[in-house]
Write a protein that binds this DNA or RNA. Structure first.
Lengths: 197, 197
DNA sequence: ACATTTTTGTATTGAATCAATACTATAGAT
DNA sequence: ATCTATAGTATTGATTCAATACAAAAATGT
């Protein structure tokens, strides 16, 4: 029974192992570990509600203490900047520095993946994204973990007009580019769970 | 450009992080790390040409020395058995012990995943498997890494009759269950790369 | 047949991740 | 005001992991 779902996990797992090895290679010049590359890639994508140590820890599935150490290293190397939040002074905000951005461009840890997916049909990719997103939603829900996903696919992301979008969860306006970023509080639209995407 | 492929990587990465956390939970009772769970899951799936430390190292993307340490621990715990190959006495063969099988059944590290995929359409899963398999093939090819995949999808897997299958790479007969296992030398059939699977 | 090289795996050492625990500081609640 | 919850850091110790060196068997070459 259920041979296919297992082999899907197999593939996800194996692909991640390969990418992990690729991240190791990409970071070896700078003495960076795979987890550092993953952290930087997350910060590149995280929206302004999700660029904190806590969110990163939840995203990586690690404890906040562990992540704090990684961030210390990335900070010392000048790859990531940390600054205090104005409203809530317990909160630390994170962002990639110019150096960090440049490092990602040059080391290009996702280059191999991009190359491999370049020639795939956009439709097939969209279908797989839709399926994996559903699985992700279920797994996250069952494990009681926060969700993470792009704003554009979130139920709280309300398009008021052509150019104006609001997040009704945080009650703030979003710019167009922001709706493509990753949020820790994402709640998938019901349509995203249906076969038709 | 290419926002969708990246978000596919995003999903694969995030799913693996979640499963990694799940593996950590599953192994915590026995003091096992995620990598041990991953190793045992591989050994459960690996065919008789691929149940060696070297193959496991390639599969995990780690060095053979590192994997040797993990196997030492799994051996001491009685979860994995190591024995010498008869033909090539350099080679160590690996298999899950009864205890190992039982541990996987009880800790059930993939239970969360199976639950999440239970209600997904078989067609959508098959399509995603097909796509990820293509991506895997390309990534593996470009990084010069060995391939890994199930025999049934391998170009060297020749069905002679209803019940008789031969691997023309190793030149040996395969049993029906064996064709569902994972081989380090898998070479995808060209049809596996086409949209229709 | 014999030396050389390659392949497979192990042992050892040191660096780095990671969790656990304890701690500080701010926010929120009663 | 006090008490509790939340966000983050510091410290400690166990464990992974790579690098290097090593041993044994097989493959190769002359």
């Amino acid at each position: 029974m259920q041979k296919t779902p297992t082999s899907l996990l197999e593939l996800v797992s194996r692909l991640e192992n390969l990418m992990r090895a690729e991240f190791r290679r990409a970071g070896s010049g700078q003495g960076l570990q795979p987890v550092h590359i993953q952290s930087m890639l997350f910060l590149q994508q995280a929206n302004r509600f999700s660029n904190t140590p806590q969110a990163l820890a939840e995203y990586l599935g690690l404890t906040k203490g562990t992540v704090s150490q990684s961030l210390l290293l990335l900070d010392r190397r000048g790859l990531v900047e940390r600054y205090q939040d104005e409203m809530d002074k317990r909160v630390v905000r994170l962002r990639l520095s110019e150096t960090g951005e440049m490092f990602l461009r040059e080391a290009n840890p996702t280059g191999l993946w991009n190359q491999a997916t370049r020639d795939m049909s956009a439709n097939r990719i969209r279908d797989s994204v839709s399926l994996l997103r559903s699985i992700l939603h279920t797994v996250q829900g069952q494990s009681g973990k926060p969700l993470f996903g792009v704003c554009a696919a979130c139920a709280y992301c309300q398009k008021k007009s052509q150019r104006i979008t609001h997040c009704t969860w945080f009650g703030e306006r979003l710019s167009i580019p922001e709706t493509r970023k990753i949020c820790r509080e994402q709640t998938p639209k019901t349509s995203a769970l249906a076969p038709g995407d």
